[in-house]
Simulated assay, not measured.
Amino acid sequence: MDVRLLEKEGFAGLFMRLRAEGLADKPLLAALEQTPRTLFVSAAHADAAYQDRLLPIDCGGFAESADLVARLLSLLSLEPGQRFLDVGTGSGFLAAVAARMVERVVTVDRYKTLVQLAQQRFAHLGIGNVIARQADGLKGMSGEGAFDRIIATCAFDSMPRAFVEQLASGGVMLAPILAEDGRARMARLTKIGSRFEREDLFEVPYRPFIPGLAAAL
């Protein structure tokens, strides 16, 4: 099928599913529409780019569905002028969508290959306000100043308290936290003073953090 047709039909299906969920954030929907999902998955999976399921990417990783990306970004209430940290670049799709809504995005991944592929995709789309770096995201990105919004797409063993200092006052972080049964649940952490106010949300498919940089990839 023609890629443009795939995009048009795929986004139409996504739009209908999100609307049925009650997600009607116009800037977010516009950002999704402007970010061709097929560019962020392999050609072999292009016809599944908009399906509500995980898709394999390089380095043994996976891309979460556009549905989940939309749901997560809507929970962060993104606005122009914000600084955004994305821990776990993956395909780069989430960072690309967020970049259309905020002032600056810093995205980090332990895999050099994923960072380079994401950089190529951002350049292809003319998205110039994303900085992609290979880094160990387990402790965030110190030295970058405070972020208004942070999202992690790898699961923490416990509350990621190290990130409190990297959030601006009133800032929000979405962090998957592992439960005793090994499953990850997304938590919305709002910075109040020098601590987090925690709100547990829903189960997410993210894997546990692997500390350090990947040696070969």
Rank of each mutant, 00 (worst) to 15 (best):
C154P: 05
A162L: 13
D181S: 01
G143Q: 02
R185T: 15
P160N: 08
S158I: 03
R185A: 15
F156D: 07
S142E: 13
P160K: 05
G182W: 00
L138M: 13
G137Y: 01
M186V: 01
A168T: 03
E180N: 12
V130T: 02
G143C: 02
G140C: 01
L138R: 12
V130S: 09
R185I: 13
M186N: 02
M173I: 04
D181Y: 03
A168G: 11
A155Q: 04
F156V: 14
A179Y: 10
L174I: 09
E165Q: 12
A135F: 08
E144S: 09
D148E: 11
D136Y: 01
A184F: 14
A162F: 08
V164A: 09
A152D: 00
G140H: 01
M186K: 02
D157M: 05
M186C: 06
E165Y: 10
A162Y: 10
M173Y: 01
G171A: 00
I177S: 06
A152K: 02
G137H: 03
A168K: 05
I150W: 08
Q134W: 00
S142T: 11
G143W: 03
A179L: 14
S142Q: 11
A184G: 02
T153Q: 05
S169R: 08
A132L: 07
A175Y: 12
R149S: 06
P176C: 04
G140E: 03
G170A: 09
S169W: 03
E144V: 02
F147C: 07
Q166L: 09
F163I: 00
M159R: 15
L167I: 00
D181I: 01
E180L: 13
P160H: 05
